[in-house]
Design a protein around this nucleic acid. Structure first.
Length: 107
DNA sequence: TAGCTGACGCAAA
DNA sequence: ATTTGCGCCAGCT
């Protein structure tokens, strides 16, 4: 077992992401705001990309322009599939539904 | 230290 | 509505 070096920034991201409920979707930007780095949306995506803990529903994080974004485990297609299976409307790699509500994501 | 990369954001066209 | 270009930040090399 190697000791995982995680930065504080990453930890915050994971904590917040873990609170996204099934059927909900948050945006990279929203999460960036929640961790007090409103302009680090890109870094947020980067952090999620680095994560490999299956407990963290990173597939529920999408782009603010509606595109679902990437997914390392199975690609965007798999991500879309997962979201649909949770009740989120996805068409052509985009979320149709505007259910981008964040409620209890603070840390 | 400096430069590069990426699961991004946004204004303009 | 879709595409283009430039800006952004944390981590790595």
């Amino acid at each position: 077992m190697s000791k995982w070096r995680m930065t504080l920034f990453q930890q915050k991201i994971y904590i917040v992401t873990a609170k996204i409920l099934k059927g909900q979707v948050a945006t990279y930007r929203s999460i960036a705001v929640l961790v007090d780095r409103p302009q680090a949306s890109r870094a947020v995506a980067q952090a999620l990309a680095q994560n490999f803990d299956p407990k963290i529903p990173c597939h529920r994080v999408v782009r603010s322009d509606g595109f679902i974004g990437g997914y390392n485990r199975g690609g965007t297609n798999q991500k879309a599939k997962l979201l649909r299976s949770e009740g989120v409307l996805v068409k052509n790699n985009r979320v149709e539904s505007k259910s981008i509500l964040l409620s209890q994501l603070s840390y």
